[in-house]
Design a protein around this nucleic acid. Structure first.
Lengths: 204, 204
DNA sequence: CTCAAAACCTTAATGCAATAAAAGTTTTTA
DNA sequence: TAAAAACTTTTATTGCATTAAGGTTTTGAG
């Protein structure tokens, strides 16, 4: 019995996100107005605000939507044999970059990251960080495989190592989307340098 | 003769930043209006816009101001004997956190970081990243000392290692300011785990 | 089946950021 | 000393966030 109202809400949410995704892709973050999203979705501007709080909230919800597909894609990519630690992280980073840039432009990603920090304890900010955590965990799983294969020391915590590597990757991802003229190859090199310097820092 | 006009500008800038620093500290980012800053500084609101572009621009300029003092403080802190690599980074991180939180609240720092990403190619966004780079370089200098002391492998690039460690530190700093209830001790532990996992990841 | 209540959306109105154009003022400089 | 250049201020506009008030639809009890 409590279905119709719920379904209408779901439907409105779906329409809002679909409209927002199109408009953001077409016009960018700045030039799309909440009113335009609302009109395209057939609701009022205040309703969009009620659902998502801010324009950045809408944007983060759009991203969260598409990131669920990313998680699947990561899982699929890592079903085979484990690579080396360095190659693992570079592959991981490449998938994330590829997914990110096929869906949204760099300038919009800057808004996404900025919103995830400034609104980090809003509902959608938390959702974004939760997805980041899921991504890091899939890296942790791969590292455990490498430990079993004898490529990574069993003495270290796979969780700690996975989080640390994810953070390095994420920082370089932010750097990538922060500069319009910065290629994947350049970022790959930087990330490789990061890891190799850290892994080989101690005298043996 | 081209002094009076320049001096008046410098004076206005100084007054605007001083007023902004006070108001941000007192009211937070959201509740301070540009008009209020302008009034406290004795200029018009449009002038504040002309000088700093956006409210976040004003904020980043305030931070850039106080960060020059941070650079000095870092230099002073590292004049003595070098520690171990882990202790070096923890000390570095502690100084940065201490400097950051004595000047501004966590919630304002979230706005600073968010602005530095979303406006990363505005004038003040670039200034912020330049200061980050300076901080990283002071870490690089310390790492070179450790290499001479035989504590860090000469085979790795001090620059790469310094940047990577700075990035790890910075990510944990952002995590620190993103959660109001998160202590320095907790972040220190996370950062220590990051470094130790990375340094000991490879089988020996 | 009906109707009151709850839940929810919309209309309306306000404050501030940001930007642009026009007007006014002060320093330069010829 | 007066025209020109450089700035600031005034004025006006647009868009977003936010709040309050009003209206509509679903629910659920009788």
């Amino acid at each position: 019995m409590s279905g119709l109202r719920e379904q209408q809400k779901r439907d409105r949410r779906r329409r809002i996100l679909a409209a927002a995704k199109d408009l953001f892709a077409e016009l960018g973050h700045e030039k799309t107005t909440i009113e335009a999203i609302a009109e395209a979705a057939g609701v009022s501007g205040v309703t969009v605000h009620n659902y998502y709080g801010t324009k950045s909230g809408v944007l983060m919800a759009v991203v969260a939507d598409s990131d669920r597909a990313l998680l699947d894609r990561i899982e699929q990519a890592f079903t085979g044999e484990p690579d080396s630690l360095v190659e693992l992280l570079l592959k991981f980073a490449a998938i994330i970059r590829s997914h990110a840039t096929t869906n949204l432009s760099k300038s919009i990603w800057r808004q996404v990251i900025a919103a995830s920090i400034s609104d980090s304890h809003s509902r959608f900010g938390k959702g974004y960080h939760e997805l980041d955590h899921q991504l890091a965990l899939s890296l942790v799983r791969e590292i455990k495989k490498l430990q079993l294969a004898g490529q990574v020391s069993e003495a270290v915590s796979a969780y700690d190592l996975g989080k640390a590597l994810f953070n390095l990757q994420n920082t370089r991802f932010i750097e990538y989307i922060s500069a319009d003229n910065l290629t994947c190859e350049e970022i790959d090199l930087k990330l490789r340098n990061d890891i190799e310097a850290l892994l080989n820092a101690l005298v043996r």
